[in-house]
Simulated scan of single mutants.
Amino acid sequence: MKAMASTSGLLLLLAVVAGGTSVLTAAAAAAESPKPTPWPHQFHSILFVNYSGSLSLIDLWYDWTNGRNFNIVQDQLGKLLYDLEWNNGTSFFYTLDSTKECRSAQLDVGILRPNWLDGAVYLGQENVDGFLCNVWQKVDFIWYYEDVITNRPVHWVFYTGRSIHVMTFEVGAVLEDAKWQAPLYCFKKKDTQADYKLDVGYLEPQLQSILRASTQL
């Protein structure tokens, strides 16, 4: 009987140890899951955008240091549009051609923080655009792909299907201050405003406030 009791006790101990090891292994695996690299405080990037066959190029200047973000957007065979955003929530959408079109918007939050991907769920690795990438999902709206070797962003896609491909990524590049000034006609009151689409940036317009607000400290 004592031998049986000893054997049972040993088996129970082994089961507890094994269970504890499994818990520790799971915890270690979770702790070792890659985290998305925060964006540099200043960078310049060329983005190729495909939205259900509608193509555009975005000349993106991100400048967290000075609280500003600039998207210069060329739609395929379309207008050249400027989307200028400030960290106080003010945004201007305008052209610089003879039409002098301009609209402004005021959001409750400013530009995306460098750590806007904090809290994203790691999904594993996938080959995208010829790069092996770590993949994360953020608030069920965006899937973000980062090169495993260089930690540079490669691609992100929204639940709507808008797909962003990163063509260049220049860390530390800064656009000269004079280019950040919206034209004077943006500050003049008008009875009517030109009708053109405002979903011109690298984010879905309906998601900008959600993603920005989710990263405010």
Rank of each mutant, 00 (worst) to 15 (best):
A3C: 05
M4Q: 05
M4K: 04
S6R: 02
G9L: 06
G9K: 08
G9H: 00
L14Y: 05
A15Y: 02
A15W: 06
V16D: 08
V17N: 02
V17H: 04
V17K: 03
A18Y: 10
G19T: 09
G19M: 11
G20T: 04
G20H: 07
V23W: 09
V23N: 02
T25W: 13
T25Q: 15
A26L: 14
A29K: 14
A31G: 07
S33K: 15
P34W: 11
P34V: 09
K35L: 13
P36K: 15
P38M: 03
H41F: 14
F43T: 01
H44C: 00
S45N: 06
L47P: 09
V49P: 07
V49W: 08
S52K: 14
L57D: 07
L57M: 00
I58V: 08
L60Q: 05
L60C: 01
W61E: 01
N66M: 08
N66E: 11
G67Y: 02
G67W: 04
R68K: 15
N69M: 15
F70L: 10
V73R: 13
D75Y: 10
D75F: 01
G78F: 00
L81S: 10
D83E: 12
D83R: 00
E85C: 10
W86L: 09
N87V: 00
N87Q: 07
N88H: 05
T90I: 11
L96T: 11
T99F: 13
K100R: 12
A105W: 06
L107D: 12
D108R: 15
G110N: 01
R113A: 03
P114F: 09
W116K: 02
L117F: 08
L117D: 10
G119M: 10
G119Y: 09
A120E: 04
V121G: 07
G124H: 01
E126H: 10
N127K: 15
C133I: 01
C133L: 07
C133P: 06
C133Y: 05
V135D: 00
W136D: 06
W136C: 03
K138I: 06
K138W: 03
W143R: 13
E146D: 06
D147W: 00
N151S: 07
R152Q: 12
R152P: 01
P153N: 07
T160R: 11
H165L: 14
H165G: 08
H165W: 09
V166I: 14
M167D: 10
T168N: 01
V171R: 12
V171H: 12
V171Q: 12
E176G: 02
E176W: 05
K179E: 08
P183E: 04
P183Y: 01
L184W: 09
Y185V: 09
K188A: 08
K189M: 10
K190L: 05
D191Q: 11
T192Q: 12
A194W: 00
K197Q: 13
K197F: 09
L198S: 14
L198T: 15
D199L: 06
D199Y: 03
V200W: 08
Y202P: 03
L203G: 02
E204F: 07
Q206E: 12
L211S: 01
L211V: 10
A213P: 13
S214R: 03
L217C: 13
L217E: 14
